[in-house]
Simulated scan of single mutants.
Amino acid sequence: MTMVSFIHVAFILFPCFLSLRAEEIKSSEACEFPALFNFGDSNSDTGCMASAFYPEVLPYGETFFHEPVGRASDGRLIIDFIAHHLGFPFLSAFINSIGTSYRHGANFAAGSSTIRRQNRTVFEGGTPFTFEIQTQQFSQFKERTGKFFTQGRKNSFRKHFPRPEEFAKAIYTFDIGQNDIAAAINNVGKEDSHAVISDIVDYFANQLRNLHGLGGRIFWIHNTGPIGCLPVAMPIHNAKTNVTPVAGYLDQNGCVNYQNDMAKEFNKKLKNIVVKLRAEFPDSSLIYVDMFSAKYEIISKANKEGFVDPSEICCGYHEDGYHLYCGNKAMINGKEIFAGSCDDPSKYISWDGVHYTEAANRWIANKIINGSFSDPPLPIAHSCRAQ
């Protein structure tokens, strides 16, 4: 090729290069989410159950908020760190009617929530706020807030709610399923767990379809964590286990294998349904986030990361076969016991045996927001680019 020919080809290709470069820059820009809507259970409940039933008591909330704020932790949850990373204020629970603003989204998550309906009352550890109810609440929220704009309400009303056109541009996050798996574990031997897990995932998919029908387009979906690694699941804290577990019952980190195996089965089927929904909704972005691996990593690296043994519980009394959960009082062996917190929650992974400390939540959030545990591997701030 002569020099003249080379220059001619380069001149022709240069605009194409600029066009490709522009597309590359455009695709690397962060998404401009106007709002965040969250659905889930106690892992992301920022005040629903506390507003609806009994408020949390100290020492819940002591680390960051210095008072109970409806979160099942000593401080912030993963959803709080996600909101901060995206530039949003803390999400208000949908039913929290005092001093709330929903301008940048709302939180429909509620403690004890499940994807499927459960035959339990609130006093039996159940909740009326199933995933189906949460999506219905969102539907009502969207419809009613839309009226503030279509009916010409004053700006004093409008400033507290998302604009109608912003629902399609918002990000929708999900962290639910752990309580469904816990219910399935409790019924091992009584029902076909494989069929139950498939049913749970189908329920989840149907609710995502409902949200898509309501305008949702960007979905950030957490799978469920290693439930067999929750300290209350471990034999060391389980009063029902009075003998040494047989070989293979526990893994190298003391987690209960069969419980984690059920979580893994749920996660595998959840990922498969997410792939199916991508084909159904080519106009949408669906990100699958492997929370199981992120949470298992902090558990397996606890000492290296500056935490105490992951089986240790910061808040509560779990000795001599007694379970007294965080913030409660009881007479045990003739002595009044208050289930208070540890001296330094930042050294613990488990806050109350079921939920994580703020320190652990921060560690996990920092791992997932950059896309390291996502499929496709996009940071959350770029998750609208998965279409």
Rank of each mutant, 00 (worst) to 15 (best):
E312W: 04
S372C: 12
A330F: 12
V308Y: 11
H318W: 14
G327E: 01
M331V: 14
I364L: 06
C314S: 01
Y348H: 07
D344G: 03
I313S: 09
V354E: 04
H318M: 14
A339W: 10
N370V: 14
N333G: 03
D320R: 11
G353L: 13
D352A: 14
I369Q: 10
G316P: 02
E305F: 14
K347C: 01
Y317K: 00
Y356N: 10
G321N: 05
E358M: 01
Y348W: 12
S372G: 13
Y348E: 00
Y317A: 03
G327P: 06
W351V: 02
M331K: 14
G321H: 03
A365C: 09
H323A: 12
S341C: 12
A359R: 06
K367Q: 12
D344C: 05
G306Y: 05
Y325L: 13
S350E: 15
A360F: 15
K347S: 13
S341F: 02
F307M: 02
K347R: 15
G334D: 14
Y317D: 04
L324M: 07
N333Q: 13
K335Q: 15
K335R: 15
R362I: 07
L324A: 09
I368C: 07
D352M: 12
V354H: 02
C326P: 11
G321F: 07
C315Q: 08
P310T: 06
F338W: 13
Y348S: 00
D320Q: 09
N366M: 11
E312H: 10
G371A: 08
V354R: 00
G321D: 01
S346L: 04
I313C: 04
P345T: 06
C314D: 05
N370M: 06
S346G: 05
A330S: 15
E312V: 07
W351F: 15
W363E: 13
F338N: 03
N328K: 14
Y325K: 06
E358R: 00
G371H: 05
A359I: 10
G334Q: 08
G316N: 03
P310I: 01
S311C: 09
A330C: 07
K347I: 00
I349T: 09
N361K: 03
H323K: 11
N333D: 15
P310Y: 13
S350F: 11
I364S: 04
K367N: 12
P310R: 07
D320A: 06
C314Q: 01
D343R: 12
A339R: 09
N333I: 00
E319I: 01
L324V: 13
N328F: 05
E319R: 07
L324W: 07
C315Y: 03
T357A: 11
W351G: 03
S350T: 02
V308D: 04
C314R: 08
H323G: 01
V308T: 09
H323V: 12
Y348A: 08
K329L: 10
C326Q: 08
C315T: 05
Y317L: 08
H355K: 10
F338E: 01
